[in-house]
Write a protein that binds this DNA or RNA. Structure first.
Lengths: 249, 249
DNA sequence: TTATTCCATATGGCATGCAAAAACTTTATG
DNA sequence: CATAAAGTTTTTGCATGCCATATGGAATAA
């Protein structure tokens, strides 16, 4: 039936993608994952990297042809992504890429703040000295990127510091939930980073994380991490939403 | 594989299923939901009500025949439930009902505690007086059930107080995430409730919630809700895991 | 007896096709 | 010209069937 040559898995959507999420490091999986999982990963990356724009519609038939898979695994992948809130699935009307309203971004940041606070509290208790040293090292690398005004590296290291602290909490559910929320907010945080030249504030705050962590003061670290995300909201709202309309009921 | 006997863990008390989750308040949806969603709801309820036991395997063909649907929507439903962590989907080896190890239960309770703490903090700020009154009313109802030693009603009202406080936070993402974690822990909390005659402790703690809420002291409420769940862990671990072995595989 | 290989069967993974619903176009009508 | 109605195309929802992999047990060898 198919006389066609295998086409590239990723469609020719143009536009500059966002940097890939930092947690796709362990990609060297040799076991053959089901197509559904592979497709989910591809679409997830396309969303996170902004190849699929927020609000954009995802057409099953079209995308399945571009990816050279049938609609069955694609549809299953979409169900997974819906659970991760990266897309919205409207009955009989297909999928659109999630496009959280400002109000929702604030709410997401509040939850992410609570998660990071817990992560900080646990990390202060459970992190190994090696982990703390590594986080300190990442911080210095971030300072280097700061000096070079290398926004992209700065952003990636910034993210990695956050995820490293969460990882040090040793709480799997927390780590995974944090990853999900972070993915939903990835775009927002990237743009917030891009548009704000006041990096030194964030740097000071990260410095605060590390001193609290090194002192193993969980409460202090928790508070500082939560406050840090509140600042993210301020920046986001100033950048993208100069006027904040309350959502009408 | 594991020679795990399907030994009913709460068999002696009641062979019947757990009470349904309290959040089936779903508005009268007139639109015909896709089969996939309906199937997901059915299976979710069966898991929460303990009709499907933890660790039990879910066979696609068999279940699809029992539900009179094809495997396609059933498989899509399983993907959804996997995202909610109610089942585990092993590549090429099908689905099994989630069966969190004690360690994982502790971790889940930590996250749930952080979520409830945030919920309490926000609720103290945003709850209407009517909502607070209603929560107080639920508390009195719970006291009534306590006097009658009506465990089931007590448990349901207990849950409803928690979800009502979270709902008062007005944070949709928080509400939904809380619902998911609560579902994953529903069984645990139910058994913890069933086995512990020391209800008065929980009652005192709930009383503490409400006074903090009425005083609109967010920090106090947050702390009390988090501590409450720590106690749940103590009860769970004492009841079910007198010795805590690592999960055998 | 214990371990190993092999085969039959069951089960999950995926492609395809049809039907129903939604979206889009065209035509009719005030 | 705007609006409504009807028809056409596209898209999603679901069932079915084939194939690859996993599973369980018998036969075989150590």
């Amino acid at each position: 039936m198919t006389g066609k040559e295998p086409e590239p898995m990723v469609a020719d959507h143009e536009a500059g993608p966002l940097p890939a999420s930092p947690d796709d490091v362990g990609a060297g999986n040799i076991t053959r994952l089901p197509l559904t999982s592979q497709v989910a990963t591809i679409i997830r990356d396309m969303i996170i990297q902004d190849i699929f724009k927020p609000g954009e519609r995802i057409r099953e038939r079209q995308l399945s042809e571009e990816l050279n898979v049938s609609r069955t695994p694609l549809r299953e992948a979409l169900k997974i992504l819906e659970g991760e809130k990266l897309i919205e699935l409207l009955p009989n009307r297909g999928a659109i890429v999630a496009d959280p309203a400002p109000r929702e971004v604030l709410e997401l940041l509040q939850v992410l703040g609570a998660l990071e606070a817990l992560g900080g509290r646990l990390a202060a208790e459970k992190a190994t000295d090696a982990e703390i040293s590594e986080i300190r090292a990442l911080h210095f690398e971030m300072l280097a990127a700061y000096s070079r005004k290398d926004q992209l590296t700065y952003f990636k290291l910034n993210q990695k510091i956050h995820t490293s602290i969460i990882a040090a909490s040793r709480n799997k559910s927390l780590i995974e939930t944090h990853r999900h929320f972070n993915a939903r907010l990835y775009r927002v945080r990237y743009r917030s980073n891009q548009r704000n030249a006041k990096w030194h504030e964030a740097i000071d705050q990260h410095e605060g994380f590390i001193t609290a962590l090194e002192a193993r003061d969980g409460e202090l670290l928790a508070r500082r991490m939560a406050d840090h995300l509140s600042d993210t909201w301020v920046k986001v709202s100033l950048d993208d939403y100069p006027v904040q309309p309350e959502k009408p009921r």
